[in-house]
Every structure is written in structure tokens, then in C-alpha cells.
Simulated assay, not measured.
Amino acid sequence: WRRAVASQMKPACFDETSIHLRSTQTTNDGRQQDFHAKGRVMTFNGWMALGADNKQSQQLPSLSSGAVITSSDTVVKAKRTQPPKRYTEATLVKKLEDSEIGRPSTYASIMETLTSRHYVREHKEGKGKQVYLAPTPLGEKIIAALAGGFSFADYEFTRQVEAHLDKIAAGEERYIDVVARINDTLDNELGKMPTPEGVEQHECPECGKPLRLRNGKRGAFWGCTGYPDCKYTAPDDGGKPGQRAPEPKPASDKTYDCPVCSKPLRLRNGQRGAFWGCTGYPDCNYLVDDNQGVPALPDKIYPCPECSKPMRRKNGRKGPFWSCSGYPACRHAVNDLNGEPEGIKTA
């Protein structure tokens, strides 16, 4: 109530006074010391009449210009220059806004990139244990290598790219022209950019090209820069390539046919463990879980009512559901009803 009423009242008024003093005695190197003091006295309390603290008044003694005064006491205090506070997520977003970089829809992905690639870490400071973003050694080395010699790390370059994107959205520029210019600049500067000192390089064990830390739907992972010629990947282990899970082996030499296209199924290893996938991929993307070296093929086949391909049971955010194995060509999906697709009968 007090804040609502105070917002409708007149501001408080003060008489402000400043005093500038200069010492008559000089230091050992011949310099005079300057001293400054500020004071103010409230002349109209305005909204502060609601009971706000009025300790803001600080009256200075009455002095005249040129007066000589004697110091009654002198205290020497040693102070060190304090570094600026580290960014929090909120203050970093504010900095991006002030620098005209990014959009509200991209701020979350920016934060995700900084943390998933181990450029920053969370650091708690102060009595309230405020969470700040502290740079990691990797982040410091990356900035040291990019700053001053790589335009993509420059605020002005990013602002210009944002402006070009706005013009594309307004129909004033062509997408292909803008992207071509940016791509040429990137290729030119990447070719001249040295490897940051102290940053460990990881070679692909299959083709020898450098591995690069990437961010996927299921988290960070390392991928070969020779993609698509080389499709080697490895899990991320604290900023370094981790060990890949050993390749699974079938329980026997028996072959299993894909229920969609009748081509053989092959045992593969994924980020969530072993699975069986169709050898007809990408024309056929059928896959099924592994059950100790044997594909866990369903006992019953439920044909899709739209394309007749088998329905497949999946786990989503809201629980299990059934979708067509012909996805993305066929996007038919139904709810799970006691382990069976709702409204679909077996073949």
C-alpha cells in the first residue's frame, strides 16, 4: 500500500552542497592533496513522508570560499581496487541486451552453450551464495586465442550480423547472399587461426582428423571434423573425449528380418545402449531394442491404419505412445492403452 501511494506523490527535494579542500602542505614528491565532501539537506519530504528512512540528510559545516581550516584528526586507510563482479545469468543477459546481441529466444541456448562446452562454471559467492559464472581454463584460453584476431568474437560484427538477419526477415536482403559473405569470412579466419596455447587437441582414432566438442539433443559429445566422410563420435567426459561403449555382439549367427522392409536387422550401439536397426537405413529407419543379443521384436504386429507399416511403442515426455515406423513419411501416432495401440487391431 505504501509503495502504491508513494508512486503517486511528489519527489523529495534536497539542497546539495559540495566542499573542495586542498592541503597547504605538500607530500614528499611535492604534490598537494585534494579532498572532497558532499552533503545534502531535505527541504521537502514528498513521498518520504510515508515514513521512509530520512537518514539521507547529511549537513556540512558552514564554510566560505578561501577559508583556511585545520584538521582535527587524520586517518589513513589502505584500499585496493576491487575487480568488477562476475556475471550472473541475469546480468549477462542484460549485457547482451545493452550490446544489441542475441534475441530473447536465443538467450537460453547461449547459456546452454557456455555450460555444456565447459567455457564457464557456476561459482557461489557472498553471504547469500549468489551464483556467478566463472570462466574455466578452457574458456580463458579460447578467448585469448580469439580476441583481437577473430571477427566472430567481436561485438560489432555480431551486431552487424543481427542487423542483416533483420533485413532478411523484412525482405530487404537475400538469405543466400548474407550467409555466403559470412561463410567466406569464417573460412578465411579459421584457416589463419592458430590453435590456442595449452588447449589439448584430440585426433579421431579412425581418420586422424581433429575431434570437436558438439552439443546434441542428448547433451555434449565429440564428433569428427571429417563428417560426413567420417562419422566417428565419442561421449564427453569432463571436456575430453570419453571411452565409447564396446560394440555389442549378437547372441548367435541367426539373422532377423525387418518387419517393415524385410531387409536384415543389424545390432548397433547408441547413446542409450544397444539396439537393432534396419540395414536399409535411411530408406527404412525401423529400429527395436536389444534383448541380450536378440532383437526384442514385438509378439504382435499392429499395422498403421494410414500406411500399413508396423506401429512402434515409444516413451515420450507424457508417457508411452505408439507411432508409425514409417516416420517421417507417415506421422500417425496414437495413445498407449495397456501396452497396445489404442484403436488398432493386430494384423
Rank of each mutant, 00 (worst) to 15 (best):
Glu100Asn: 15
Gln130Cys: 02
Asp73Cys: 14
Pro61Gln: 02
Arg121Gly: 09
Thr115Glu: 11
Leu138Trp: 01
Gly128His: 11
Ser105Gly: 12
Glu112Trp: 00
Ser72Arg: 15
Gln160His: 10
Asp73Ala: 14
Thr81Ile: 15
Thr136Cys: 14
Leu133Glu: 03
Glu156His: 12
Tyr107Ser: 06
Ala147Lys: 13
Phe157Ala: 12
Gln130Tyr: 08
Pro135Ile: 00
His123Glu: 02
Leu138Gln: 08
Ile69Tyr: 01
Ser62Ile: 06
Lys141His: 02
Thr106Asp: 04
Thr70Glu: 10
Tyr87Cys: 10
Glu97Asn: 07
Leu138Glu: 01
Asp73Trp: 01
Leu138Arg: 03
Ala134Gln: 06
Lys124Ala: 02
Glu97Arg: 02
Gly148Asp: 02
Val76Pro: 15
Glu125Trp: 02
Ile142Ala: 08
Lys85Arg: 09
Met111Ser: 05
Arg80Ala: 12
Leu96Asn: 04
Asp98Ser: 12
Lys129Glu: 08
Gly66His: 03
Ser71Ile: 15
Thr74Cys: 09
Arg80Gly: 14
Ala90Gln: 05
Gly139Phe: 09
Phe152Gly: 09
Gln58Leu: 12
Arg121His: 05
Phe150Leu: 15
Thr106Ile: 13
Thr70Leu: 09
Ala90Asn: 08
Pro84Ile: 08
Gly149Pro: 03
Ala90Glu: 01
Arg121Glu: 15
Asp98Cys: 04
Lys94Leu: 10
Gly102Glu: 04
Ala144Arg: 07
Tyr107Ala: 11
Val120Ile: 15
Phe150Gln: 07
Glu122Leu: 13
Ala147Met: 08
Gly128Phe: 06
Lys77Pro: 00
Ser72Ile: 08
Gly102Phe: 08
Leu96Asp: 05
Ala67Tyr: 00
Ser99Trp: 03
Lys95Met: 10
Thr81Leu: 15
Ile143Phe: 13
Thr88Ile: 06
Arg103Ser: 10
Lys95Ile: 00
Tyr155Leu: 11
Ala108Met: 13
Phe152Thr: 05
Gly126Cys: 10
Gly128Tyr: 08
Thr88Gln: 09
Gly128Ser: 10
Ser105Trp: 03
Phe152Ile: 13
Ser105Tyr: 06
Thr81Arg: 08
Lys94Glu: 13
Ser151Thr: 10
Ala134Thr: 01
Arg121Phe: 08
Lys127Thr: 14
Phe152Asp: 02
Arg121Leu: 11
Lys129Trp: 03
Pro61Glu: 03
